[in-house]
């Protein structure tokens, strides 16, 4: 019977609710911009990781390496694009 119970999914769901609640503190409590952004960055990226590994089974198949390489590469370039753009057009303009 234990095999039937979707433990991974339930835990992932609970965890993402908790993280959402944690993120909400930046709205309900009076935090500074820096602290707020830190909280949001942490909760968002952890939640994304939970979805990726827990729900999307990113690491289960023989193509694990290709899949992770693809995701990491995408995220790295995405971050470069976002922060590079901000550097050029906002922070250093």
């Amino acid at each position: 019977m234990s095999e039937l119970f979707p433990r991974k999914q339930v835990m992932g769901f609970v965890f993402s609710l908790v993280l959402t609640a944690a993120a909400l503190t930046v709205y309900f409590l009076d935090v500074s911009f820096a602290v707020g952004m830190t909280i949001l960055l942490a909760t968002a990226f952890i939640q994304a990781a939970v979805q990726l590994v827990g729900f999307m089974h990113a690491g289960e198949s023989e193509d694990k390496v290709a899949i992770y390489a693809n995701i990491y590469y995408g995220i790295a370039i995405a971050l470069v694009t976002i922060f590079g753009t901000l550097l050029i057009l906002v922070w250093d303009m």
């Binding site: 993120a23 930046v26 949001l40 909760t43 968002a44 979805q51």
Partner: peptide, 10 residues
């Protein structure tokens, strides 16, 4: 999740 965090909450 990213929209929620970085568009709305931020």
């Amino acid at each position: 999740i990213f929209i929620f965090s970085f568009i709305y909450l931020k």
